[in-house]
Write a protein that binds this DNA or RNA. Structure first.
Lengths: 126, 126
DNA sequence: AGTATTATTGCAAATAATTCGCAATAAATC
DNA sequence: GATTTATTGCGAATTATTTGCAATAATACT
């Protein structure tokens, strides 16, 4: 579990993350819960997202929009993303990473994580 | 050229970027120029970095620190980064990307760019 | 179940990065 | 050198995120 107490706020943040097919921002989680008439505070969302990241329950995704996006880490769900520079559409990209990882493992760094993001135009925007 | 005028401010930002061996933040560019007694304004740095990015002269690097880092794009200098989660050390990582790119080219997306960042511990922090 | 303990929340205020409006300045052009 | 207008500096505004603190609610204890 995150922290030590399984609170309503935490359940709700979890729910919002599961319901989203794309990585979402703290503000988007807030809006989605507000729309469901949940009493929730943005600061609590940020605090919980921090904890969830530290507990390795979520990943942080960065597209240079000036804010962070979050998504649940699930079993065998490792993937990367495509971000459309025109419309902001986000799609998951899965790929065989043996080569990437084999290369980096040879270095003197202890790798815990990697993020690979693609930028370009989605089919609709080409 | 960026924009249409080759100003002192632009020369200085260029210089600051060239002098740095790692991707640096807007604030770091500002500090470095201030230390050299250059009259420079943070807003102008941001404006020029925007232009330079649009002109494809620099890349934006994101490590989730809550700010952007920038580095000059030079001929044949394409590479990725390692970011030490403990001390913040940044190192360049070069690798053969044929496989990554071959895979992604098969998709319906038009890829213009990709960013691959590694996170973990540098030799000193292990 | 009732009470005690303390992690967690809500709220408001503080930070930090980045952006914007506008008048002043300085490159490039004539 | 005078003119044009892109660019700068400055201050204020915006946006994302963080923090302090008293109030609240999950769990543990009896």
């Amino acid at each position: 579990m995150i922290g030590q107490r399984y609170t309503k706020t935490r359940k709700n943040i979890f729910k919002a993350l599961s319901n989203s097919k794309k990585p979402i921002t703290a503000q988007e989680i807030f809006n989605s819960l507000k729309n469901n008439d949940e009493k929730i505070n943005l600061a609590s969302i940020y605090r919980n997202l921090d904890l969830m990241e530290k507990s390795d329950l979520i990943s942080v995704i960065l597209f240079g929009e000036g804010k962070k996006r979050f998504e649940l880490k699930e079993e065998n769900s490792h993937h990367h993303h495509f971000f459309c520079e025109n419309c902001g559409d986000i799609e998951d990209i899965k790929m065989n990473e043996d080569k990437i990882l084999a290369n980096i493992k040879k270095t003197k760094f202890l790798i815990k994580e990697h993020k690979l993001e693609f930028f370009g135009l989605c089919p609709d925007c080409q």
